[in-house]
Design a protein around this nucleic acid. Sequence first.
DNA 1: CAATAGTATGACTATATACTCATATAGTGC
DNA 2: GCACTATATGAGTATATAGTCATACTATTG
Lengths: 104, 104
Amino acid sequence: MNDTTTYKADILKALAQPTRLKIIDFLRNGEKCVCEIFPAIAEEQSNTSRHLNLMLASGILARRKEGVKIFYSIKYQEVLEMAELAGRIVRHEIIGRQLLLEAV
Amino acid sequence: MNDTTTYKADILKALAQPTRLKIIDFLRNGEKCVCEIFPAIAEEQSNTSRHLNLMLASGILARRKEGVKIFYSIKYQEVLEMAELAGRIVRHEIIGRQLLLEAV
DNA sequence: CAATAGTATGACTATATACTCATATAGTGC
DNA sequence: GCACTATATGAGTATATAGTCATACTATTG
């Protein structure tokens, strides 16, 4: 309703993508460098880098340089909470749709 | 990490758009018909209808027919919680960026 | 300073998204 | 059945997004 609505949408958009959700899940236990992230999520290095930069720009990730390696980490606990809430809805929805199918 | 990742992203995507966030905010206090929603958020009827259908399809809204009117409502409390969490991050980020500016 | 390892980015393609205008569909009351 | 109101949808446009390949940049090491 206010002027921060677009910004709020950007934060949610930063999470609303499967590759990025996989990255977030991998960062759950603390910071990781790009060289660890892209093999873990089985994506190309360049694609992974783009997603990391997008999340960095939106403000939900932090970045730390250590020599040639770049470490990314989750900047807000709220990010994990949002992912968890989305997961809860998915679980409910799957159960609901299974019941619909069984009713046929 | 698992197979529900795409679905989780779809739930988040359903929220990650300014017009849809405005709709969610307007539905905060209970179900409303399309005829109330689109003037409240100052969007075209057709555009509003599309966004409502998208959110319905993703599973975060419920729909009830009453005569010629269609009432939409938020199906999961989690939806409002996600919007609230995003808002919290935005507030933190705005403060952080203001401090950066002031430091110049 | 050359070679190497890690990360980012330019250029491109394919697809998805938001929006608009016009029109279709579905109930309601006369 | 006709007119009216409420909602949905087809068709089109403009823009955004995700991904790939090749290459550029940057810090480290020999």
